[in-house]
Simulated assay, not measured.
Amino acid sequence: MDTIVIGAGQSGLAAACALRDAGRTPVILEAGHTPTGSWSSYYDSLTLFSPARYSALPGQDFPGDGDHYPTRDEVVAYLQRYADSLDVEIRTGTHVTAVAADGSGGFLVHTAAGDTLRAMGVIAASGSFGNPYIPALPGQDDYTGQALHVADYRNPKHYAGRRVVVVGAGNSAVQVGYELAEVATVTLATRQLIQFMPQFIGGKDVHYWHTTTGFDSLPPHWLARIATGTPVLDTGDYAASLEAGRWDRRPMFTAFDGHEIIWADGEREHVDTVIYATGYLPHLDYLAPLGALDANGLPLHDSGISTTHLGLGYVGLEFQRSFASNTLRRVYQDAEHVTAPLAAHASKSLAAYSL
């Protein structure tokens, strides 16, 4: 094959589009049964933090009012339509278990079904939903309450009347904590104060300013200089709800003990459910046999281009090249950057192979 793209979420579809535009013939392998990535597995009430006009892939506008905030199901439908319009081969239900070198500059891609596919190039666009991060805390394994990552949370109906602690200070933690507060007693446990950012500045959505000022394209090393935490976009409801005492925020607890947690000040409290909204790590375990990952399982790359193997690239990594690298509005730019050298490599390799 020319180039195999692993994953058919927004990153994989963007990568395939960029490869197609570069004259290549990509094949997408997707573990799920639809070419929509992990979107259908997110919690029911999830809405994008960016308006529809800033939430589209190239060549297909997001339908509806450009100023509305698309729901999870709208994104799923959009990605399905986008996949249908790409005119590239997409194999769903194909779980990649390992990628290895073939000894001649290409790759062998092994699947759970026992198939081995050979390709000149590979783009890992499998996202991170399959690798949720949960911090390690003393007593965690013996906690007798319910503990889950937000990846496994769907809606608040099962938490009515419970004491719930949500761990995290980002957008998902606040959104989930806010809706749970309608039916449960909720605290956000965080290592720093929640940093609310207004959704509208000067009458325009903050994403208008992100795009027009160039903030979206700032390289990661510049972001490291100015970042002071994770901003939570707020139309005013979240901060007002917190100030009104509908839910609260406390410094992160230090340990579990049976059915209790131990707060930073030493107080013990019986807690029914702990929900970790603590983010995700790249889901790339299938690249371990290739030697493309560091000791922590993170990819060795420069702006998405592998530093260990010619012909290997990544699309959809957080802060891969910019603040918005793994978002619908910016992922194609990263895909273009990665596919240019991969397309050249695949072209040379296929030409040599044909000889």
Score class of each variant (00 low, 15 high):
residue 116 T to W: 08
residue 136 A to L: 07
residue 102 D to S: 09
residue 133 Y to K: 09
residue 90 I to W: 01
residue 122 V to S: 11
residue 105 G to N: 02
residue 124 A to V: 09
residue 86 L to F: 00
residue 111 T to K: 03
residue 147 A to Y: 06
residue 103 G to D: 10
residue 119 A to T: 15
residue 119 A to G: 10
residue 100 A to K: 14
residue 85 S to R: 10
residue 125 A to G: 00
residue 86 L to M: 01
residue 83 A to G: 03
residue 106 G to K: 04
residue 146 Q to A: 06
residue 175 Q to I: 02
residue 132 P to T: 07
residue 136 A to P: 00
residue 150 V to E: 12
residue 115 D to K: 06
residue 165 V to S: 07
residue 112 A to E: 14
residue 124 A to N: 03
residue 132 P to N: 07
residue 90 I to A: 06
residue 164 V to W: 12
residue 131 N to E: 08
residue 105 G to W: 10
residue 92 T to K: 05
residue 86 L to T: 07
residue 152 D to G: 10
residue 102 D to F: 15
residue 130 G to F: 05
residue 110 H to M: 08
residue 162 R to E: 15
residue 146 Q to V: 12
residue 133 Y to P: 01
residue 166 V to Y: 04
residue 173 A to G: 04
residue 100 A to N: 07
residue 87 D to H: 10
residue 155 N to H: 15
residue 127 G to T: 00
residue 117 L to Q: 01
residue 95 H to A: 09
residue 121 G to R: 13
residue 131 N to T: 13
residue 149 H to I: 11
residue 154 R to W: 10
residue 113 A to I: 02
residue 103 G to N: 04
residue 172 S to W: 11
residue 127 G to Q: 01
residue 150 V to Q: 02
residue 87 D to G: 08
residue 136 A to E: 14
residue 140 Q to G: 08
residue 86 L to R: 06
residue 119 A to R: 04
residue 139 G to S: 08
residue 94 T to H: 10
residue 122 V to Q: 10
residue 127 G to F: 09
residue 122 V to Y: 13
residue 129 F to L: 04
residue 96 V to E: 07
residue 163 R to E: 11
residue 134 I to S: 06
residue 89 E to V: 02
residue 116 T to S: 11
residue 96 V to L: 12
residue 127 G to V: 12
residue 169 A to L: 07
residue 143 Y to S: 12
residue 99 V to W: 06
